[in-house]
């Protein structure tokens, strides 16, 4: 099973990388862009996990390692 995890900075957390990219887009003339936030995308291939345990397993992996809850949020989707 393919799991797609999107990790993003929490609201209010400064994203210097996003700011730099925003500036660059403005330089290129894309003045309508108001903000840029850059995150991380993770794909997991998971086998042998019953469907009812999937959600808790993914959340566990995120809180233990994949995401830093002090500054990051995540959402995920399971692709069958």
């Amino acid at each position: 099973m393919l799991v797609k995890i999107y990790v993003t900075f929490r609201e209010g957390i400064l994203d210097p990388q996003g700011k730099a990219v925003l500036h660059s887009l403005h330089t290129l003339g894309y003045k309508s862009v108001e903000d840029v936030r850059i995150g991380r995308y993770i794909e997991l291939n998971i086998n042998d996990t019953p469907e009812e345990e999937m959600d808790s397993k993914i959340r566990e992996m995120c809180s233990k390692l994949l995401v830093n809850p002090i500054i990051e949020d995540f959402r995920y989707e399971v692709v069958r």
Binding site: I13, L14, P16, Q17, A20, N68, I70, I71
Partner: peptide, 16 residues
């Protein structure tokens, strides 16, 4: 910080 032995975390330097 990651181990939780001290509080808080690090962001990228603001200058990148």
């Amino acid at each position: 910080l990651e181990a939780g032995l001290l509080p808080g975390t690090m962001l990228r330097n603001r200058s990148l």
